[in-house]
């Protein structure tokens, strides 16, 4: 886990490299004027990122390494729930049973809760309504989806992703 000034400069360098790569890829014209404008906008972006506290430690570098596995699981989850929701919408009787559930978020830092809330919203059939003081309020399209969510798989995965 990176800490203090060292972590700050690692993040700074990572964002700088990303911005330079993005500019060079998207621009495609390599004249001094445009490269100068690119440098200027990179500096501006870094300044803005500094101002919103982007370089203060929000998550560990190891969380990024765990991200692909989490995304693979999330993709599978999205596919499954998409098929369910599509079946419900196409059903003539529209068998919905809207349910609102509340539960505590397992990740205790803000980024983990954002990841959890956004993952829940991204998978169809569940929409995060409110995240407040570590408590999530989620609207579910059917009661089965609500029960599945209350069993805590999302919570466990998100906490696992964000643990140090």
């Amino acid at each position: 886990m990176l800490s203090g000034m060292k972590g700050y400069w690692y993040r700074f360098a990572a964002l700088l490299l990303l911005l330079i790569a993005a500019w060079l890829l998207w621009s495609g014209i390599y004249t001094p004027l445009l490269l100068g404008l690119g440098a200027l906008s990179c500096v501006l972006c870094l300044y803005l990122a500094h101002r919103i506290g982007f370089f203060v430690e929000l998550f560990s570098a190891r969380a990024i390494l765990r991200l692909p596995r989490y995304w693979a699981w999330l993709l599978l989850e999205v596919v499954k729930s998409s098929l369910d929701v599509a079946r419900i919408i196409l059903n003539r009787k529209l068998p919905i049973s809207p349910t609102v559930i509340e539960f505590d978020a397992a990740p205790d830092e803000p980024v983990g809760q954002v990841v959890l809330g956004n993952s829940i919203t991204l998978s169809p059939g569940t929409v995060t309504l409110d995240v407040h003081n570590g408590r999530l309020r989620v609207h579910c399209l059917t009661r089965e989806v609500a029960d599945a969510l209350l069993s805590g798989e999302f919570n466990r995965r998100a906490a696992e992703l964000m643990k140090d």
Binding site: T126, V127, L141
Partner: peptide
């Protein structure tokens, strides 16, 4: 279709997230 068929605001959000995600 779901955004048009579903009965209230919060359920319509599920239809929107279907197109946005999958």
């Amino acid at each position: 279709l779901g955004a048009l068929r579903l009965p209230d605001f919060y359920t319509r959000m599920h239809a929107a997230s279907l197109t946005d995600g999958m």
